[in-house]
Nucleic acid binder design. Sequence first.
DNA 1: CTCCAGGAGATAT
DNA 2: ATATCTCCTGGA
Length: 294
Amino acid sequence: MNKENLWGPWRTFGKSHHFSHVSLRETLQGGQSFDWKSLSDYHWRGKIGDVALECRWEKNLVQWRKVRIQKLKSLQVEKYFFLDQGYQNAIDELPWRSDPVLRKCISKLRGLRILRQPLDQTLFYFLLSSAKSIPQIQSIGDAVCKKYGKEIAPEIYSFPGWERLAQVSEAELRSLKLGYRAKYVAQTARLIANQDNGLEGIGDLPYRDAKKELLRLPGVGEKIADCVLLFGGNFLEAFPMDTWIEKSLEKRYALKGWKSDNKIHFARIHFGKSAGLAQQFLFSAERLGILDKK
DNA sequence: CTCCAGGAGATAT
DNA sequence: ATATCTCCTGGA
């Protein structure tokens, strides 16, 4: 790879991004995406689809640049980072006016976003996520991308796609340390490759139908389906219920003793149609331990 | 050494 | 319906 002149010029997000350093870092590396690696605490390298990108925090500005010869429009970057008015609208729909817990999360993590990632790749990473920590998911995901994808920038490999993964054996995936998840990936890949239009169209279905489609795939249960829909399908109503959020709801909303199904029901009613965005604020706030401080 | 992670699927009640 | 066990791997 030609290292000279690899990166194009830095471009700057509009003023209304509202990110803080913390909320930007949390957006990129807080567990919704596994594409971003830090070069420093203020500088990340990652990808959007098959295009390699860098992103940095520079004196309250957020800047990005891409590999010069790769194609990506500013508009696509803005869409990926949810920079449009839809973000503020979604925040406005949350019940922060009457919910002090949520108000605190939003205030402390101003600018935190749900990324609009490609659905196929999001499904892949979350199939790997069960009983794994963020660094582990990133590590085994990267191993697969490195072996079957393209190197689109130094140390950045593209997601090879389900068609390609359909040609890989479970044993080979196991050799990449996927463990029992290897079977999920291998079987899901074959199923998708044999479908007429692959995963296309899922993003256009109503939430319930899209979820039903994903639940047909081996290794995809309630939690992972909602992660894929929220982080890779632009379904802000999807509410992934992991053990962290479950504990958080018990503690912050006095739901101790409630069954999981009832907790989800509470979340949908209470947080409304952008419940997934609320989930992300809660999740990050718990992760960073900023709810117990004043 | 044992335990258990940001889960899903199979099996048994 | 709900409870329990197992599945790989790596880190505490």
